[in-house]
Amino acid sequence: MRFRLGLTLLGLLVAGAIAAPLLGQDSGAPDLFNRYAAPSAEHWLGTDDLGRDLLTRLLEGARVSLAVGVATALAASILGTAVGVVAAWRGGVVDALLMRLADGLLALPALPLLVVLAAVDPSVVGLPRGEAASDMIRIVGILTLFGWVGVARLTRAAALSVLARDHVRAARALGVTEARLLWRHVLPALTVPVSVATALAVAGAILAESTLSFLGLGIAPPNPSWGNMLANAQELVFSAPMAAVWPGLAILMAVAGCTLVADGARGR
């Protein structure tokens, strides 16, 4: 039930993001004669401070925000799964080191550090400044740095429990190769925890991206993202309060959708 509800929410957003061009509105072209227009047949949610169609902007923002969320979650899952499996498999010092690192990262306040990281000159790591694609890569990279921890902890716990099972211990004693053991026994058992963790990571990344963009450190205008649309709307709260409501609702939908999917997956 939850799983379905979550999928429906996400499906709506994804469909909207894909269908955005079908609305036939050019989200880039300002129309100075039509600023802050009220909702109408032509502009379902009205227009923004430059006379652009709000719904189209919102759906294009969905592309950016969802892309960042999914990319971050995938990167974090791959890294986190690898770390978790290695820690569980090797045990001992490796495990202790990796888990101390994870604990250390978890104990740190993430956002202040994200602010520092996001303010660092992207050209230092060879990314051009101020371009949309590099903005996204940068954000995904930064969010992954903190995102893998949760996945790693979940994976490690799951992998440990698999490795402790009798048939796995027997297989190990019989000299089954490590690769085969991992592939046949450990990884299949990890699919559920990892997908739950990934879904949660998508939610976390969407929230974090919107927060960074809101603080002016994420996706830069004119590229729409829910976070920077909200930042813009906050300044106009008095002229156009509804402009602040829609992007927030979109974030709420996306994050709640991911959480529900994760909850549902866990319960299955």
Binding site: A203, F214, Q234, V237, P247, G248, L252, V255, A256, L260
Partner: peptide, 22 residues
Amino acid sequence: AVLGQAMPSFWLGILLIILFAV
């Protein structure tokens, strides 16, 4: 609980400002 956790806190802040302050 799901809604509360999914709600971006800056958005909630803005909404509260719109309602209670403005």
